[in-house]
Nucleic acid binder design. Structure first.
Length: 223
DNA sequence: ATGACGATTTACT
DNA sequence: GTAAATCGTCATA
């Protein structure tokens, strides 16, 4: 059972991935380690993956494989995958069972257990070279900091005490910026869609979103 | 059985 | 900015 009474329940996750991604901003992801240590962070960057029609999604074309089977579960489950031979990334599954969509958690603002996170992230390099904004500012950084790996793939975030989300604070739409997703250049037109959502003023983002197009903007658009 | 490829991070020039 | 690290996964044969 989750450790907090304000843990987000099933209903929260049964939405389309774009809506869920936006409302995930500001929520708090909590990891409870086997030894009882508590690590947590506020969600500041999320991407939506729209499933079967989305060329960037692992379930594009309706693919259902041993790796991505968690994406087919009911909303509120975790989809954790291993990539590049060394990194893990964590998604919150959206929609209902059979609709394989999800939200990739790309960055957190660390809240609890920063010292433990530093140790997880440091590896062999000197621990003093890690600033707070280097702990969870990327999809594979945050899984490393929170010790999230494939052993947590497919768990139910609604009822599993090792990993869950709680209410946190809602982020107003005026502080949210949408941008193209990162690292999906192979996905054609799907790479350009604004399916990445960030808390605009957070220093904990993986990549700073381009300035919004408009007067005074001189970068980000060719043509 | 084989090979190409990552929803990334890091270090280095 | 460029490149290396590193191996599970999946489509093809």
């Amino acid at each position: 059972m989750p450790a907090h009474s304000d843990t987000l329940g099933r209903r929260f996750f049964l939405r389309d991935p774009v809506t869920l991604a936006k409302v995930l901003l500001g929520r708090v992801l909590t990891r409870v380690l086997d030894d009882g240590a508590v690590l947590s962070g506020r969600v500041v960057e999320v991407e939506a993956y729209l499933g079967i029609p989305d060329r960037a999604a692992h379930t594009f074309g309706g693919r259902k494989t041993p790796r991505n089977r968690s994406m087919w579960l009911d909303g509120g489950h975790a989809y954790v995958y291993f990539t590049y031979g060394m990194h893990h990334c964590m998604n919150v599954v959206s929609d209902r069972e059979g609709t394989p969509t999800a939200c990739l958690i790309r960055a957190l603002e660390p809240l609890e257990g920063l010292d433990r996170m530093r140790h997880h992230r440091a590896g062999q390099r000197p621990i003093d070279r890690l600033c707070d904004t280097d702990l969870c500012s990327g999809p594979a950084k945050l899984t490393q900091a929170l010790a999230i790996d494939r052993s947590l793939d497919g768990i139910d975030l609604v009822s599993d005490g090792r990993l869950f989300l709680h209410r946190g604070r809602v982020v107003g739409a005026d502080r949210v910026v949408a941008a193209p997703r990162i690292g999906v250049g192979y996905a054609g037109v799907w790479a350009e869609k604004l399916l990445r959502f960030c808390v605009a003023d957070s220093p904990h983002l993986s990549v700073r979103p381009e300035a919004i197009s408009g007067k005074g903007s001189t970068i980000g658009f060719a043509g």
